[in-house]
Amino acid sequence: MPVVVLKDVKKSFGSLQVLRGVSFSVDKGDVVALIGASGSGKSTALRCIDRLETIDSGTIDVCGYSVSDPNLDLRRLRLDVGIVFQSYNLFPHLTVEENITLAPRSVKRMQKAEASEIAREVLAQVGLSDKADNYPEQLSGGQQQRAAIARSLAMQPKVMLFDEVTSALDPKLTGEVLKVIETLAASGMTMIMVTHEMAFARRVADQVVYMHQGRVHEAGAASILTHPTTAELSEFISNDL
């Protein structure tokens, strides 16, 4: 049963066509790695799934919502979709706990105690139980990113999107964030992640989608990363040591 379906999605920024007909689908509980060179359209494709960008043609269905429908209630879509960004985007004036409880309280109208309980749970999940009262600037990049993941998880989404979440981190911090994502994958969360971490994709992804010049150039099980069939993917992987 697919949770996310993209069919022939096209998107241009001005005269630049970024997506030239992208199609793929994600089953419930699947982990999909969206890979490709910079400018291949993978981040744009991901952002279209959460309607941070609107598409020009094609269709996107997410958890039964037609994302391309202009009358879609975006807030309902976003209750089901969590997204984590490369730059964390934590709210700097709020403590980690306040960052996490903000949406449960103001969107889901939860009581403070109930929201705090959820914050404790998700912070334990990402290994930040002792940082609840800290402000984002007091955390390392890896900790900030894990806090951002916790903030998304607190809304109990059905699908999680990760947009190059480790690109701003050094290898050690990348490791701690990937570990959290891996645990999440093992728990059965449906996830789509744009990533440059090939080894991680190979280990965790059920499906790899390789994008090249705005199209899905090659897709399949993680094994395509070790046995690519197209010359472009083969070349792309060979750049990764």
Binding site: D50, L52, L74, R75, R78, L79, V81, G82, I83, F85, S87, N89, L90, F91, P92, H93, L102, A103, S106, V107, A148, R151, S152, M155
Partner: peptide, 30 residues
């Protein structure tokens, strides 16, 4: 206020008014 802050608020399901009130107002004022 950085665009990423508005996007994060939006993706968490906050309305525009809530984003102004909870996310933008205090950092802007500070």
């Amino acid at each position: 206020i950085h665009r990423g802050q508005w996007e994060a608020a939006e993706c968490l399901g906050l309305t525009r008014v809530q984003a102004y009130w909870h996310v933008a107002l205090l950092p802007a004022m500070e």
